[in-house]
Design a protein around this nucleic acid. Structure first.
Ligand SMILES: [Mn+2]
Ligand SMILES: [Mn+2]
Ligand SMILES: [Mn+2]
Ligand SMILES: [Mn+2]
Lengths: 222, 222
DNA sequence: AGATATTTTTAGGTTCGTCTAAAAATTGTC
DNA sequence: GACAATTTTTAGACGAACCTAAAAATATCT
């Protein structure tokens, strides 16, 4: 049984949405919003995926990946993130330029290729955006990092990933000089608008709006 | 106007066939044999490609690529061969393992990606099978090499490419220890069956059947 | 609970890329 | 030049992946 490119994209969407909202059931409208397809189109596809035992689907009740569906989704995510590492590390693309190309490359079908690519890249654990790369068995370390704005006290943090992957946001971070792994020292938290006065790597102070702070994932610096 | 994966494969097939038979017009049946589709299916597609001005199509008279169609075909071939170089040089695949994966990768759509891949690989001129890689402007050095069996005299040759790309044939060449760039010294040509007694890189003598000799492309060693 | 709003499914339609069977055009043979 | 063989096209059908419009189910509000 073969899984089409379109089916792979639906499985990935269901996987992503179920983790995004921390609910096991994903709704038709959530999928239709995410993939920018009409709800009727999604219903069609859900029937086909259920037929193939990739999801459990009860009409009107939403949808859940089966083990097989989950394995497939994670494999696509693994490929996406490995290719992003390749594009940034080897081909010197910027981190805001790789997502669309990886959306294509993630559907290339060859187990041998993934395995060799993984080795070629040095079995990376994270992609250029700080997202964890599932291992060959589909094991994925869930990220324990929190958005900066959920830390209510001053202190020094390490920037480990982003919550928002848009080109505009990634370019904004680049323009303010923030890269994965940088230290962020919070000097002040502004009560009024929840903005943050911070220092990146001991450079000059600058301000993060709450919106920026909410999309920056950090760990507490040890 | 966007060109689908399927359309790209038809354009590539037409390009390849027109060069294979050195005829400008390619027939419906040639395409249908090559792509293993039914002739009726091919006719349907030819109408669509003509509609898009990618081919000149006169019913019953065969088909020819337009400039635009030719440019597209050559770009797909360029991508195919660059990816094959990547797979062999960087990921250490064997030359008989890369074609199927390249058949998928050749459809990835990103000019920036091709350009960077080309640079990453050191702007290679030939793929792992000795086929020339079109440059970024679509220029392609036609191969002047001839099959070994068309040389009717003894002498020393350089193995520069293959006429037949099947896994079986490539593995056979590997098993007899023949690689691109090797010197082949023809010591005898057997009149009876047109087989060749040869030495590869000054190793022990061995025999090439005419069939093998006809699929090995060589240049005369200077 | 009943009315209203929202979500989801069903019904019916389109395009792409494939097929089979039959008709038409071209090519080869005597 | 007529007949036969081959090639190519047309006609009609189908599945995948999309759509719009309408109906049905579920959720929300007073
Ligand atoms: Mn991405
Ligand atoms: Mn990423
Ligand atoms: Mn190939
Ligand atoms: Mn090749």
């Amino acid at each position: 049984m073969t899984i089409s490119l379109t089916e792979e994209n639906y499985l990935k969407a269901i996987y992503t949405l179920s983790h995004l909202f921390e609910e096991s059931e994903v709704s038709t409208n959530q999928i239709s919003d995410h993939l920018k397809n009409k709800a009727a189109t999604v219903t069609d596809m859900l029937k086909r995926l259920a037929e193939k035992k990739l999801i459990n689907y009860i009409p009107y009740q939403g949808v859940k990946l089966t083990e097989k569906g989950k394995r497939t989704a994670i494999k696509v995510i693994r490929k996406h993130r490995l290719w992003e590492v390749f594009l940034v590390d080897k081909l010197k693309f910027k981190w805001d330029e790789v997502h669309e190309i990886a959306e294509q490359l993630e559907h290339i079908n060859s187990d041998e290729l993934i395995q060799r690519l993984d080795e070629f890249l040095g079995k990376p654990k994270f992609d250029p955006h700080g997202d964890p790369i599932p291992d060959a068995n589909g094991q994925l370390n869930s990220v324990k990092a929190l958005p900066l704005n959920q830390h209510k006290a001053k202190g020094t943090f390490i920037f480990v990933g982003v919550n928002e992957h848009s080109k505009a946001f990634l370019q904004h971070l680049t323009s303010i000089g923030l890269k994965i792994g940088d230290a962020i020292k919070v000097e002040e938290i502004n009560e009024f608008d929840n903005s943050f006065k911070v220092k990146i790597n001991k450079n000059n102070s600058q301000f993060f709006s709450n919106k920026v702070a909410s999309n920056i994932l950090v760990e507490i610096k040890k």
